[in-house]
């Protein structure tokens, strides 16, 4: 038997396979396809202070080996989450992490405080990296000082596990990672989507209503992997790696580069059962190479 458990800060996960925010709903949408309790964890979709209608349609453009989205944090707000959604998901028997988003430090703090009260939510993922809202998230995540500031403000009110999700739309991901670690993050997740664009040449117009959007899927995997590796060298807190993971081999690359766990995002759209295949693939790989524990894989990249 291989040991699939992994640790992210104080979070003990049954295995390293989590799902990425905004790509897995609240988990229950996948109950027909997989046994949710076999997941290492679920990061539910973004929760903001108030109801948000998100951006206008069209919000999606398919691109080579990937897609652009400009959903813009559509959700019904934190009070609705606490009252209506939390009761329906709290007993899913996997680690539930809430993706906390906002436009101002006060909004992040307000949401974090309310989620802090929920017994079955052991962690939040602070989304300081959403490219799809004006004055939102990404502005915090692209400057070290503000990334650190919002992290510290949430840290002051949130006493469970604090994961901060980083934007790849920066010059030096390592500098941002260090600033966020100094701000009090327990761990980091990376990457969010890369800012991109698509044009409909027949209409001579942008495909997305917002003109630009966030690129996800296998197209971004090499960038994500490079960033995880750089951040792993730069900070001492655990990393959750994501960006374009489609199969177990992709996931193992992230673990070797230094991620203690991984998230699966866009791949869920194409195969809603892909997380189970990734989990089984990691297990098979460990048996093949006689690796006892996932922990022995993390950052095990040889570079001589």
């Amino acid at each position: 038997m291989v040991n699939l458990t992994t640790q992210i800060g104080n979070l003990k996960l049954k295995n390293p396979v989590l799902t990425a925010s905004g790509t897995f709903g609240y988990g229950v949408e996948f109950a027909d396809f997989i046994d949710l309790s076999r997941l290492g964890g679920i990061v539910v979709k973004a929760v903001t202070g108030k109801n948000r209608e998100g951006n206008p349609y069209p919000r999606m453009a398919e691109t080579p080996s990937g897609m652009l989205n400009s959903v813009g944090l559509q959700n019904k707000g934190v009070d609705h989450f606490v009252k209506e959604i939390y009761p329906a998901i709290k007993d899913l028997n996997t680690c539930l992490i809430v993706n906390v988003s906002g436009s101002t430090i006060e909004e992040y703090v307000e949401v974090a405080e309310k989620i802090n009260e929920l017994e079955k939510i052991p962690a939040i993922e602070l989304n300081i990296s959403c490219p799809n809202v004006k004055h939102g998230g990404m502005a915090f995540g692209t400057v070290a000082a503000s990334a650190s500031e919002v992290t510290a403000a949430v840290r002051a009110v949130y006493n469970k596990d604090l994961i901060v999700k980083l934007s790849p739309n920066v010059t030096s991901i390592a500098d941002i990672a260090k600033a966020v670690a100094d701000g009090g993050a327990d761990s980091l997740s990376l990457i969010n989507t890369l800012l991109g664009m698509a044009i409909d040449i027949n209409r001579q117009r942008p495909v997305l209503a917002t003109i630009t959007g966030g690129l996800s899927g296998p197209a971004i995997k090499p960038v994500a992997l490079r960033m995880v590796w750089q951040v792993h060298k730069a900070v001492n807190i655990p990393i959750i790696g994501l960006g374009g993971i489609m199969n177990a081999n992709d996931a193992i690359e992230f673990l070797l580069a230094g991620a203690s766990a991984i998230q699966v995002g866009t791949a869920n759209f194409i195969d809603p059962a892909v997380t189970m295949k990734i989990l089984e693939g990691i297990e098979a790989y460990m048996r093949l190479y006689k690796i006892q524990s996932v922990k022995d894989l993390v950052g095990a990249l040889k570079n001589e």
Partner: peptide, 11 residues
């Protein structure tokens, strides 16, 4: 994108 309600792209 997904077709089963999670990506919120087709609104």
């Amino acid at each position: 994108a997904c077709g089963f309600g999670v990506c919120l792209c087709c609104v």
